[in-house]
Structures are given as structure tokens and as C-alpha cells.
Simulated scan of single mutants.
Amino acid sequence: MAKKSIQARQRKRAVIVAKFAEKRAALKEAGDYAALDLLPKNASPVRLKNRCQLTGRGRGYMRHFGISRIMFRDMAVQGKIPGVTKASW
């Protein structure tokens, strides 16, 4: 499980990205890169990292489900993800 501070930092970045999204789009459309440079660094969506919604793990993230591979496997074995079963042959 990721540290609580890292998860909090990620949530903070997501709020800032949403706050400045329209302003960033308008400045990019106008080509005003000087004004774009004055915005906070965390306003850039590139600074967001995909993390597991349950544990905050940054590696092994499955985009389709929004969770890490480890949590996906645990939940699939327990039958908590509809339509997903463990393969056997």
C-alpha cells in the first residue's frame, strides 16, 4: 500500500488539474505559452499518475478496471468483478 502522503498528493494534483483545465485549454488554443508557463506545475495533466483506487499502488495498474494487478487478481478469485473468472484448462 502506498504511503498516505503520496495518495493525498495525487488527489491534490487531480483537483488542481480540474481547476485549471479550461484556462490551460484556452491558453493553448491562443498559443500564449508565456502565460501558460505562469500556471502552477501541478496544473498539467502530465503530472498525474495512474494509481490503484484501493491501495494507491503505482505499478501494475490496469486502466480498464482502475486497480492494480494484485487487487484485480484477489477480487477476481473472490468473484467480486462481474464477468471475470480464473482461467483453467
Rank of each mutant, 00 (worst) to 15 (best):
M1R: 06
M1T: 08
A2R: 06
A2L: 07
A2Q: 07
K3I: 13
K4I: 12
K4T: 06
S5N: 09
I6L: 10
Q7C: 09
Q7H: 00
A8H: 02
R9C: 07
R9L: 11
Q10M: 06
R11N: 15
R11F: 04
K12Y: 08
K12F: 13
R13G: 06
V17L: 12
A18L: 12
A18V: 10
A18Q: 11
K19P: 03
F20Y: 15
F20W: 12
F20V: 05
F20G: 12
F20T: 14
F20A: 10
F20S: 09
E22W: 08
E22S: 14
E22Q: 13
E22K: 12
K23N: 07
K23H: 10
A25V: 09
A26M: 08
A26C: 05
L27N: 14
L27K: 07
K28M: 15
K28D: 07
A30I: 11
G31R: 05
D32F: 07
D32K: 15
D32W: 11
A35E: 11
A35F: 13
L36G: 10
D37Y: 10
L38P: 00
L38N: 11
L39F: 10
P40R: 13
P40M: 15
K41E: 11
N42D: 14
A43C: 15
A43H: 09
A43G: 13
S44C: 15
S44T: 05
P45S: 14
P45H: 04
P45I: 13
P45T: 03
V46E: 12
R47C: 09
R47E: 15
N50V: 08
N50P: 01
N50L: 09
R51M: 08
R51K: 02
C52I: 01
Q53G: 07
T55G: 00
T55K: 03
T55S: 03
G56S: 05
G58L: 05
G60T: 09
G60A: 06
Y61N: 05
Y61M: 07
Y61T: 00
M62F: 02
M62C: 10
R63L: 06
R63W: 03
R63D: 02
H64Y: 01
H64M: 02
H64Q: 11
F65I: 05
G66P: 05
G66N: 08
G66M: 08
I67W: 01
S68P: 00
S68W: 02
R69M: 00
I70G: 03
I70D: 00
I70S: 03
I70A: 04
I70C: 01
M71F: 05
M71T: 08
R73C: 05
R73V: 06
R73Q: 02
D74H: 04
M75S: 03
M75K: 14
A76M: 03
V77A: 01
Q78V: 11
G79K: 10
I81D: 02
I81N: 01
P82G: 01
G83R: 07
V84Q: 04
T85F: 00
A87P: 04
A87W: 00
A87Y: 08
A87M: 04
A87N: 07
W89P: 14
W89M: 02
W89H: 06
